[in-house]
Design a protein around this nucleic acid. Structure first.
Length: 201
DNA sequence: GACAAGATTGACT
DNA sequence: GTCAATCTTGTCC
């Protein structure tokens, strides 16, 4: 990306995760023929955020989080599910934005094939583990450059250039440390958002 | 080498 | 609404 041709429009990924998170809403994540619009995210800062994987310093697992903005950080949750993050910030100040929910756009048939238990379209990608399964994202994608046209996983700019409609904010989900920080963002009223659903205070 | 914790999900009551 | 499944990573001895 030295020429900047692939990152045009995503320069703000170099900002703090808290600033970049709401701007990711509405943009598109693409894996092969499958793609989905990002409708829910959570921001995780670096060493200052106890809930962040980067809080304990750099390890083999979270190395991608300490890379440059625009990389994909994938980790396994509860030994069962994969969760996908988009690395934000700078290498001096690591951080990432967890993708919690997508609105399926293309490749629905392949998503259903990988998530046979999903009952409805809104159940396909309404959770971090679900969307990784639906898109086929796994540990082998850790460290992938989302802004390169060559990558198997790509982040695409929405036609609108960002979120359409109001964005709602609430506390993060499923964590025990720093759980009070309202760093979860979602598109208001979108049926693909994971539980617990808005309205949030 | 052993142990505890975890950014979840799905099945069951 | 409640609870078990599952396994990798990091920490401690």
């Amino acid at each position: 990306m030295a020429d900047g041709s692939e990152s045009d429009g995503f320069e703000w990924l170099g900002e703090r995760p808290l600033a970049a998170a709401p701007r990711l809403l509405g943009n598109v994540l693409e894996v092969g023929a499958r793609s989905g619009r990002i409708v829910e995210v959570e921001a995780y800062e670096g060493v200052d955020d106890l809930a962040s994987h980067a809080a304990g310093g750099r390890t083999a697992r979270n190395a991608a989080m300490f890379g440059r903005a625009g990389l994909l950080y994938v980790y396994r949750s509860y030994g069962v599910h994969w969760c996908a993050n988009i690395v934000c910030g700078t290498e001096d100040r690591p951080g990432a934005v967890l993708i919690r929910a997508l609105e399926p756009l293309t490749g629905l048939d392949e998503m259903w094939a990988d998530r046979p238990r999903a009952r409805t379209v809104t159940d396909l990608c309404s959770g971090p583990g679900k969307l990784c399964a639906a898109l086929g994202i796994g540990g082998h994608h850790d460290g992938t450059d989302l802004l390169s046209a060559e990558s198997p996983v790509r982040l695409l700019m929405a036609e609108s250039g960002g979120p359409v409609g109001p964005v709602v904010r609430g506390p993060r989900v499923g964590i025990t440390k720093a759980a009070d920080r309202p760093w979860r963002f979602a598109l208001e009223g979108n049926p693909h958002v994971s539980r617990p659903r808005p309205p949030w205070s």
